[in-house]
């Protein structure tokens, strides 16, 4: 626990990117998320922590309507992206997800070449006008994901042939390539070894310059290392939300304190 250093990067006065009000999520009869209010800032890394099954991943998947793919799932309350309700009937989840990208727990590169993996988003959304532009987007995204140097000579090799850490960075590059405004990451390092984890964490910190990043993690150290804001979930409730430094040093709620000190989990 000696690695509990809090990220020193300052949190300035930033715009609110996503604001959630009284969000409820039901899985059939199960009330999975209860009354969650949260404001996620632009150009900030926000971490969701909490014991497994607390609803942090479920809430994350509400932010780009990935829960729509589960038939029994129902979401109530308001989630605004730049002041627009993303659950409005007029909103097309396809357009929304182009703005709110997602990286998953397990690296899931498509069974295509590295190039085609990264080019997938720009192609389906029609973001580039020609091959040269697409090449540039691919290179830029791979550079942002800190993968360019490792794969630039084998862009047409299958993405599934990379190592675990490289695969996850490829998935991040793939998400970055659609130039989203928010990047959701669902335990992006849980399937990675410590070295790969360190690389991805470093990357997350760099991504903050351009995106609002929301990361779900089961590791408190990771939350402390990469995030500026932290939200603690417990049994479907958002228990505490604040500056990462405050949450880890001066938790207000006894449940937060128990979790951070390892008594519940």
């Amino acid at each position: 626990m000696n690695d509990m250093r809090v990220s020193e990067s300052a949190v300035g006065a930033q715009d609110v990117k996503i604001s959630a009000r009284k969000v409820q999520v039901f899985y059939g009869e199960n009330h999975a998320i209860k009354d969650v209010d949260v404001e996620i800032l632009d150009r900030t890394v926000t971490a969701f922590i909490g014991p497994s099954g607390c609803g942090k991943s479920t809430f994350l998947r509400c932010l780009n309507r990935m829960n729509d793919t589960i038939p029994i799932c129902r979401v109530e309350g308001d989630i605004m992206l730049d002041g627009e309700d993303i659950y409005d009937r007029r909103v097309d989840p396809v357009q929304l997800r182009a703005k709110v990208g997602m990286v998953f727990q397990k690296p899931n590169p498509f069974p295509k070449s590295i190039y085609d993996n990264v080019a997938y988003g720009p192609r389906i959304h029609g973001l580039t006008r020609n091959k040269a532009e697409l090449d540039e987007v691919v290179e830029q995204s791979l550079r942002r994901a800190a993968l360019w140097n490792e794969v630039k000579d084998r862009l047409h090799a299958p993405g599934t042939g990379l190592s675990g850490g490289q695969q996850q960075r490829l998935c991040i590059a793939r998400a970055v390539a659609t130039s989203p405004e928010v990047l959701l990451m669902d335990e992006p390092c849980s399937a990675l070894d410590p070295i790969a984890t360190a690389q991805v964490e470093e990357l997350i910190d760099e991504l903050r310059a351009n995106f609002s990043v929301v990361i779900v993690t089961h590791s408190m150290q990771q939350a402390a290392r990469v995030s500026q804001k932290t939200a603690f979930f417990h049994l479907g409730n958002l228990v505490e939300y604040g500056e990462t430094g405050d949450i880890f040093t001066r938790p207000q709620d006894p449940r937060t304190e128990s979790y951070i000190s390892g008594r519940i989990g």
């Binding site: 780009n64 990935m66 997800r97 997602m102 998400a175």
Partner: peptide
């Protein structure tokens, strides 16, 4: 075909048919 591949694609904003 693993669900994670579908999630990956849908998460990028692809439609179901894409």
């Amino acid at each position: 075909v693993p669900q994670s591949l579908r999630d990956g694609s849908l998460g990028l904003g692809a439609t179901q048919s894409e």
